[in-house]
Structures are given as C-alpha cells and as structure tokens.
C-alpha cells in the first residue's frame, strides 16, 4: 500500500481516501478491487462490499469537499465515479468475471471480437442449431403478436418449455463459472491459466443462452399482455 498524497501516512483499506487525514486520493491506476481494499478474486463477499460501498460513498461524497481545494474537489468527483463503477460491476457475478479476466490481460467482450477467432471459439454445432431453430419459432410468435393475434397455444407451450430448459442451462453455466473462479482464486499460475480459458469458453456459450432466455421471456410476457387486452383466441371465437 502507498502513502497518502497529503499527510504521507501509509494508506489502509481503500486507496481512495486517507484514514488518517481524510484526503481523497488520485484515482489513477486503481482497479475496482483495490477500490474496496480487496485482492483480485472471483469470489466476493457482496454483503461486506456493499457495506464498504456505502461507507466510502459517504466519506468521498463531493458535498463534503465543496469548500475544499480544487484538487480535493476533483479527486472527490473522480473517486465517487470510480466507486460507483466498481460497485456496479463487482456486484454482478458475470460482469465481475468479465472484468477480472480483462484486467488479467485476457481478451473478453465485443471490443476484442473477430481478431483472434479460432475454431476453439465455435460453440458446439447442436447448440447453434437449437438456438437458431428456437429463434425462428420466436419470430413466428412475434409476428402473430404484431398482427394482434395470440400465438398458437401449442407453440407457446413448446417455447415456454424450451425457455425453461435454457434457463436451467444458464444456471449450469453460472455454477460452472463460479467453480472455475474458485479454482483460479486458490490456484497457481498454471491452474489460473486453465481456469481462465474455461471461463472464457463458458462466457462465450453463455451469451447465446442469455439472449435466448431474454427473448423467450419477452415473448411470453407479450403473450400474457395480449391475452389480458384482447382475451384468448378461443374466447374471441366462441363469442
């Protein structure tokens, strides 16, 4: 840990604020884990971090520095912004994984896409087929919904079942991510490299599944809304 920029006392806890003199520090080079005085790890005690987030929010709040020096005011604004970003990302288990992999130097996310494309990144063909077919069905449903009709009950049942299956798949992927994260947290360099590779694969797979779960939910919600507005098809026909 470094020393405070103002009073030169060694820093404890968060590097954003000096516990001794209360000076807000420059945010340069501080990662989201350091914000909370944490080592890089996939496992996170979110309850403790949330408590720390609120404590730091109060201590760093720009209102407290309104009459401070220009440096204090600037630092307080920047530190508050960093604190908010850090909490928003770290509290979400998937965003946390993506962030940690990124700062560990792995290529993750859309901005790295298409450069290192290899056969390894291809999802299993059966998953791709299934995702594609379900998307076709979802489109049919959306089309009939747009025409103000309810989709066939049998189609909806099928889609809802597929949605359930994919939600379960999402749960499995998330559990696997957590398990690999734990391996990384406890492991040596070789274990970490292997766990990171696994996590990148899991994230790749997860995006297909996540999109589908999202779209199925939207279709089911739209269907429920439509039936509330217009009544079910069979009701209309029987009138």
């Amino acid at each position: 840990m470094s020393n405070c920029a103002r009073c030169q006392q060694p820093m404890h806890d968060s590097p954003l604020i000096c516990a001794a003199c209360g000076a807000v520090q420059s945010v340069a080079g501080i990662d989201y884990f350091q914000v909370f005085g944490l080592k890089r790890a996939f496992a996170l005690d979110t309850v403790a971090v949330e408590r720390e987030f609120h404590r730091l929010s109060r201590r760093l709040h720009p209102d407290r520095f309104a009459r401070g020096s220009e440096t204090d005011r600037q630092n307080s604004l920047a530190a508050t912004a960093l604190l908010n970003d850090a909490w928003r990302v770290l509290r979400d288990p998937v965003e946390r994984v993506e962030y940690l992999l990124k700062i560990e130097g792995h290529a993750v996310g859309e901005e790295h896409a298409g450069k290192g494309k290899s056969a390894e990144r291809e999802p299993p063909p059966d998953l791709l087929e299934e995702v594609f077919d379900l998307n076709m069905q979802l489109e049919e449903i959306r089309m009939s919904q747009r025409m103000g009709e309810s989709a066939e009950a049998s189609t909806m049942t099928e889609i809802a079942a597929a949605g359930k299956r994919f939600e379960a798949m999402l749960g499995e992927v998330d559990a696997a991510l957590q398990a690999e994260g734990a391996k990384w947290d406890a492991g040596d360099a070789a274990t970490r490299a292997q766990a990171a590779k696994k996590m990148i694969e899991l994230l790749d797979r997860r995006r297909y599944v996540r999109n589908l779960v999202r779209d199925v939910r939207a279709a089911v919600t739209a269907q429920a809304l439509q039936q509330e507005l217009y009544g079910g098809n069979f009701v209309a026909e029987s009138l």
């Binding site: 996310g109 790295h112 291809e122 999802p123 797979r205 995006r207 297909y208 599944v209 999109n211």
Partner: peptide, 8 residues
C-alpha cells in the same frame, strides 16, 4: 455464431 455477443 458470434460468441462475443450471441448473434446467430
């Protein structure tokens, strides 16, 4: 498919 965003 594009694993980066889940497009097919």
């Amino acid at each position: 498919g594009a694993p980066e965003c889940g497009d097919v």
